[in-house]
Each structure stands twice: as C-alpha cells, then as structure tokens.
C-alpha cells in the first residue's frame, strides 16, 4: 500500500548547517497493516510519517501510496490524493469554532460531497468512535480522549485507504490511551484501513501494531515483527535500544 523508495529529508539549522532528519530510507507497508514507527525523539519518525502524505517533501526518492507516486503529482492532483490519506495528530488539531459534527464533515466538504451524504457519513463515523451524543458540542467542551476520537472520526470520514497517526496518544493519560488505541484497532479491523502510527512508547506498539520500524538518527535500524504482544528484534543494535527504552 505504501512504498517509500530511498526517501531522504534534511532541514536547515538556523545557524546555516544541515540536519539529516531522514537518511535514504526504503520501507514497504502492506495493505491492512497497523505499522509502527518507533524511536527516541529526534530519530526522524514524525518526519518519515509526514513524508508519506508529502507534508514534508523529500529531497530525493519516491513516495508511492496506493500505486501512485505522490512526488510526481501536480498541486491539485496531490490534494485529491491526500483525500485518500487521513491524518491524526498528537495535539488533535480540531477546528475550535466548529462543532464535533462539523469537524468530521470538514474533509467531506473539501472533497465536494453533497449535504445529505455528508450528514449520513458524519453520523456513521461518530457512531464508530462512540461520540454520537457529542455531535453538537464544541471541541473545548470535550476531554482529551474525546477530542482524539473526533480526530479519528474526521480522518476516517472520506473512507481513506490509509490513516497516518502522529503520536496519537502522547497527550493522553494511560487509560484514555487504551481506549483511543482500541478505537484505531477497531477501524483497522472493520474497514481494512492501513494505519501508520508514530510513537515513542513500546506499549503502544505492543498493543496494536503488527510490525514496527525502529528508527535512530534518521535511519531504520530494523523492521520488527510484533507477535502476541511481543516485539521480535533480531539485530543486537535494535535489542540494545529496546533495552534502553
């Protein structure tokens, strides 16, 4: 579903030097998979995630999502492709002056859906995340966990094939984290959406990922399988890092 082919990204320091956020990286993520990107802060995991929907444009390499190389698209083609890739954020990034229902409707308005279809789809998505009774509330009236579930409903609304989740539980307490992860796992199971999830917590990877890439210094150290809630690291470098974490 997602193929990153030799992608790299660097940022300019204020002092003029360069910082290699992602070094030439190749990664394949299968359809229907929940894939984790894990590493310490500064390892390049968020940048790698943001390369997948081209919020960051790579200096080199190709980004294939659902068979399409996003780096070759025009601005309007890229906008259409992005409607097929939902995104969930650590800080939720909901629109404060829109109700819950209007937030979930937002990507559908952008995609040009008609009113009646929007209303139906919004109701469905709020049902999926269990927030039907909060439809007319504003984000400021919700708890953190509820806000993130609105974020997930919003990402799910346009029936995307992929959802990118950038530290979706890092602003939440442990109990709320469990319910939000459960919500993501549900969506993956029910609709077959491929989910790529950035986290710095092994617990999150163990809870819902099938595979995870361990990142360090902008490179993938190892792509690990997760079986029965255990992360299977083969290389010693990966094992050392997991011990330290």
């Amino acid at each position: 579903m997602i193929h990153l082919n030799n992608v790299s990204k660097r940022f300019r320091h204020p002092d003029g030097g360069w910082f290699d956020a992602v070094r030439a990286t190749t990664l394949s993520i299968a359809e229907g998979e929940i894939f984790g990107l894990i590493g310490f802060s500064g390892a390049g995991k968020s940048t790698l995630l943001r390369l997948i929907n081209l919020l960051e444009r790579p200096e080199a390499g190709a980004v294939l999502v659902d068979g399409q190389d996003l780096t070759r698209l025009s601005a309007s083609e890229l906008r259409r492709a992005r409607q097929n890739i939902g995104m969930v954020f650590q800080q939720f990034n909901l629109l404060a002056n829109r109700t819950v229902a209007e937030n979930v409707a937002f990507p559908l308005e952008i995609a040009g859906w008609n009113r009646a279809d929007i209303a139906l789809r919004v109701a469905e998505c709020l049902e999926v995340v269990g927030l039907t009774d909060r439809a007319e509330h504003y984000p400021a009236q919700l708890s953190g966990g509820q806000k993130q579930r609105v974020g997930i409903a919003r990402a799910l609304a346009p029936r995307p094939k992929v959802i990118l989740a950038d530290e979706p539980t890092s602003a939440l307490d442990p109990k709320t984290t469990q319910s939000v992860l459960q919500c993501l796992a549900d969506i993956n199971a029910r609709f077959g959406v491929t989910i790529v999830l950035v986290t710095h917590e092994m617990g999150v990877v163990r809870a819902i990922c099938q595979r995870a890439a361990l990142l360090d210094g902008g490179s993938v150290v190892e792509v690990m399988d997760v079986k029965q809630g255990e992360v299977q690291a083969l290389s010693s470098a990966a094992r050392d890092m997991l011990e330290a974490a």
Binding site: M87, L95, A96, I110, P158
Partner: peptide, 30 residues
Amino acid sequence: VPRGVVEAAEAMGASPLQIVFKVLLREARA
C-alpha cells in the same frame, strides 16, 4: 490560528482558498 490546524487542513487536501475561508477566517472570527 494554530499552525497545526492549518496543517491538518492541508493534510486533508484543502486548497489555499478553502484554507482561508474554512479555516483561517472561521477560526479567527472573534
């Protein structure tokens, strides 16, 4: 208007005009 909210709209495929009218002006209306 928080940068993240604009970025969320970009990630959803919003055009610059949609970002202006549906995000910036609406979020900053007060």
